[in-house]
Write a protein that binds this DNA or RNA. Sequence first.
DNA 1: CACCCGCATGTGAACGTGCACATGCTCGAG
DNA 2: CTCGAGCATGTGCACGTTCACATGCGGGTG
Lengths: 340, 340
Amino acid sequence: MPTEAAGKGRAPSIRDVARVAGVSHQTVSRVLNEHPSLRDSTKQRVLEVMEELQYRPNRAARALVTARSRTIGVLTTRSDQYGPASSIRAIEEAAREAEYLVLTSSVTSTDRDALREALAHLVEQSVEGLVIIAPQQRVVEAISELSVDIPYVTMQSTGLLDDTVPSVDQIGGARLATRHLIELGHRDIYHLAGPQDWIEAEARMRGFLDEMGAQEVPTTAPILGDWSAEFGYYAGREMLRIRDFTAIFSSNDQMALGLIHAIHEAGLNVPGDVSVVGFDDIPEAAHFWPPLTTVRQDFAELGRRCIARLLEGLTGDSERYRGTIAPELVVRKSTAPPRR
Amino acid sequence: MPTEAAGKGRAPSIRDVARVAGVSHQTVSRVLNEHPSLRDSTKQRVLEVMEELQYRPNRAARALVTARSRTIGVLTTRSDQYGPASSIRAIEEAAREAEYLVLTSSVTSTDRDALREALAHLVEQSVEGLVIIAPQQRVVEAISELSVDIPYVTMQSTGLLDDTVPSVDQIGGARLATRHLIELGHRDIYHLAGPQDWIEAEARMRGFLDEMGAQEVPTTAPILGDWSAEFGYYAGREMLRIRDFTAIFSSNDQMALGLIHAIHEAGLNVPGDVSVVGFDDIPEAAHFWPPLTTVRQDFAELGRRCIARLLEGLTGDSERYRGTIAPELVVRKSTAPPRR
DNA sequence: CACCCGCATGTGAACGTGCACATGCTCGAG
DNA sequence: CTCGAGCATGTGCACGTTCACATGCGGGTG
């Protein structure tokens, strides 16, 4: 005499469902995978039994037999900052919609070993694809070093190399910011750039230099920062010892905040004495003092597109998200014509 | 005649390793699980073959047979903000160390349905434990509603309910901030609180009220905010229409930033006319203008302890992280004695 | 020398799912 | 009436790992 529902601690499987519904386990599997040739009544019955038994498909078993993990890895540094964090959130959402899982691996330092280790960790979880939010150059090196052959998408692209890769037009955004300063009448403009192995930082610097060149404004070498407000502050203090400029374009909002701090501390006024433009438009930027003129980029959209792009490559669909995402100049109170 | 290494596209399995090493698959498994009774020479040989074949254990197969996913879920709102984001990072790190995976599910809105859905998503991935960074009350409701029986740890606890749960002493921190203002001579102090269903927010409000009561300073009802700088700004504008206060204690740094913005905009001075204290000590706080006096809490440590606590429950070990994490008052320039 | 114990290793069966193939049934064309 | 096509479903195995149990072997004890 067979006991009804065995339930020996394990969760119900498709076989349990099949037994109760009076069908074969394969039929249950077909219901799960939405196989076309299934009688409606059968399908309904199976679904009811699933509900009744509180059946949940076993991801591990499925991954085992299909040899696909349906998991995407995100390799990130600075995941505690607004940009990366909001991209990650969007990535998660988009992935969930496509029934993919997201595994993030954050790394504190960006040295080669740390990146390699984080990457190895993701690879060991057999992720099917990779999104990189980190100094691209080094990570790409690490990928080839580990000789893993996983499709990846990087989040810091210029929008130049390959227009099939989703990207914000960083160069264009930087030119927007720079042009804004020039149009206000500034001629002595500094650029506080990000770390040079971030493609993002390089693109913004390039945009700055391009625009300065196009408008025939002479410029000095950009200062290389590390994205932090702390750095912006100390860089600002140094710069103010000479003070041969009337405006600064900072590669992100945090460094701009540090700059403004240094300027205020020196008894100067923003934008009266020095105009400052940032990049990113973090939610706080509107409430800096003065509210920051900056370039807004849509991190969430970027995250969504990255996933779309990655999944497209994974599944072979060719529904492309072409073209770059246009950033937008948000003029607030930290910029004004130079006093003179 | 058996072909040497089959390699039909699939990654090598323990059986492949076993064949090459001339042992049984079980012996390979024992190497993986560090079984005590293994001859050293055997172990070495197996390890060499693993290296040679680039063998990677298959997580899915393991999860299938052990019925354990070794995965922890994090349910979070506002994952793009500094506090949650840095906790998540620490959680990931700690989990990785314990060979656990972290799945985060961020949710934009905090209504019941969204939380329920995000929770269901995590449950479907068969997470073994849960860390909650969200309005606790509602999530707990959702958990019982879904009748899932998963151990969980919440990140916003007061440190009062149960001292086995890791937590920052929010009440103590709030009292520190409040006492600082009182000691400076302020008597008309407002509190801008967080959303009331965040235990964190409630605890800080409680700390504020407790301290005010203990020092016999009369107080008015706190204002309930939503954590955002935007809210702080508009709340500030409203408050300044009456202006019957000389200091404000904000429940987080972002709202404090908005407040300062409103105060500056009204032509007033911080801390000259109004002193402001924040909470969290986000990295930007030191570079606000004026640099913000705030209460620092160690989000990373909190994340680590949460995982320790969760794993302890999962594995039955009893190595406890007792006691609360003490927050620290960081006095900068946004507070001063009242002008009078 | 017979016995048993413990170490090092092997054997076979699960785990829950999907795939390839097989089966029976219905329906319409010739 | 026969036959093949296609639909709805079933059967058995494979995926990579661990678990329970079996096996052989060396050595200490009586």
